[in-house]
Nucleic acid binder design. Structure first.
Lengths: 144, 144
DNA sequence: CAGGGTGAGTCCGAAATCCAGACCCACACT
DNA sequence: AGTGTGGGTCTGGATTTCGGACTCACCCTG
């Protein structure tokens, strides 16, 4: 009977509420790639203009993007990443890595990345404290 | 006029198609936390039973989870991560880190993690090639 | 000046999804 | 006999998403 709301209080769930809606992360991806304008994002992502409008607004409201005019009069805008938005980089890169590893076609990953100009960038999870790569087996959750 | 489909071919988009639907990643989170059963996942995530049924089926079809019976006759099942599923760990941890950094309440992050039993685990993005932490500024996309 | 193009949206009705909650069935426990 | 549990299915309504057409203000070209 008890209306058991054992729903986990969790940073993952909270984050998903902010960036988990359809097209939100692809809009952010475009900004990371330097595409800051509405029409360009529509073209690159394939999102309905409608939906993209709503997502961008939400991302601005949530402090992930910042909307700046680059021309008044024909009022035109560009979207920039805030510091919080920049912090989504690991999320984007982890998704990219997984897709590269598990969904790449015969001609390999569609996009190649370079790190510090001198070697291939291969995203990986590590531990900021000890600096070593991290694997699920080595991590334990501690109820607090 | 040209029906310009400049949609980017991209591992991020492809990954989102697989795990980007609502509740999919939270179901995966539960399995990482050791909760392998349907009812438990419903309770912990708050997802509609319906939707969760659909997600689990999709995740199994996509090779991210594996459904194993742990009792026949009252037919009962548990879900396990496949190797591809385990590879989602960085995605989950990156989302967690972002939530910890940007959405935590006054009493800090809801969940603490431990790495190799002897220190706090703080998820971070690094480069597998050079082993160093990676920041957006240091990475360049190369059209190929 | 007419015609076309661009950027950033808005509006529309149709289609797909998601939702809460009720229901179901097979079994175990008391 | 009655209650509980596990893993669902069903239903009907609410919410989102969709593709495409439309708008509006401006610029550029001939």
């Amino acid at each position: 009977m008890a209306a058991t709301d054992d729903r986990r209080i969790c940073s993952i769930a909270r984050t998903m509420e902010v960036v988990g809606e359809k097209w939100a992360l692809l809009a952010v991806r475009e900004v990371f790639l330097g595409n800051r304008r509405f029409d360009e994002m529509v073209r690159r992502t394939g999102a309905p203009r409608d939906t993209l409008t709503a997502r961008l607004k939400a991302l601005v409201d949530r402090g992930i993007l910042e909307k700046r005019p680059y021309s008044e009069h024909p009022a035109r805008f560009e979207y920039f990443l805030t510091p919080a938005g920049l912090d989504l980089y690991p999320v984007i890169m982890s998704l990219l890595r997984w897709g590269d590893d598990h969904l790449a076609g015969p001609d390999g990953p569609p996009l190649t990345l370079q790190h510090r100009g001198d070697h291939r960038f291969v995203p990986q999870l590590s531990c900021e404290v000890c600096g070593k790569p991290a694997h699920p087996r080595e991590v334990r959750a501690v109820r607090h």
